[in-house]
Design a protein around this nucleic acid. Structure first.
Lengths: 104, 104
DNA sequence: AAACAGTGTCAGGAAACCTTACACAATTGT
DNA sequence: ACAATTGTGTAAGGTTTCCTGACACTGTTT
């Protein structure tokens, strides 16, 4: 689902957006395709879904600038969650976890 | 998962097969990509997995001809299951199902 | 021995993709 | 009011990717 395997033409067909729009949203740092060795963009299904969300917001008059801020906020929250989870995991390991060496 | 959105170059990278091989297996009717309006092949993730299975069998010395027969057998069984399910569904509908018209 | 299977490789051509640039209406900022 | 920015279309010129068809070659099957 996160593997980047879809070319821009297919993304165009899947989303109904123009290639111009898709590239522009990348320029505005809303989406981050990978590149083939030759330079062609490659997107994931998650990217396609994100693009649809972006397109909806833009239709609602939200600017790419605002959308980017929203995304950063959302991602920050996500990172915070990750950190929290890892800290808790670390605590659990410290209390009850197995050592790395053989526990003979 | 069954949406045909992957081009042959990506499939090559994902499977490690050569494009020649991928096209040949299609010629032998083991795989059925869709085509873009311009004629480019488009594969699904399911296709990619199937290709890997095919490649494994061929490495084991099984011929495409045999692989095709296996696939037909497997698919026949699947179809039979589908038919059975539909028949049972039909029976249930006949016994207890709603009519098509308004059930006033 | 003849036919077939599986794969590599090459050639010529078409489709798909890339970047850059100009244009232009609509919106935003000063 | 005016300048700057946003979002999108479109065109040119160039590179990458994909297509089909053909020839070659090594094994395997008939």
């Amino acid at each position: 689902k996160d593997k980047k395997v879809i070319t821009i033409g297919i993304v165009r067909d899947l989303t109904g957006l123009s290639e111009r729009q898709i590239r522009y949203y990348e320029e505005r740092k809303l989406i981050f395709p990978e590149r083939s060795s030759g330079g062609s963009r490659k997107y994931s299904f998650a990217d396609v879904e994100l693009l649809v969300e972006i397109a909806n917001k833009i239709e609602d008059g939200v600017q790419t600038h605002e959308i980017r801020k929203e995304m950063l906020r959302a991602q920050k929250k996500q990172n915070q969650n990750d950190v929290t989870r890892k800290m808790i995991q670390g605590q659990l390991n410290a209390q009850f976890g197995l050592r790395k060496g053989p526990s003979s």
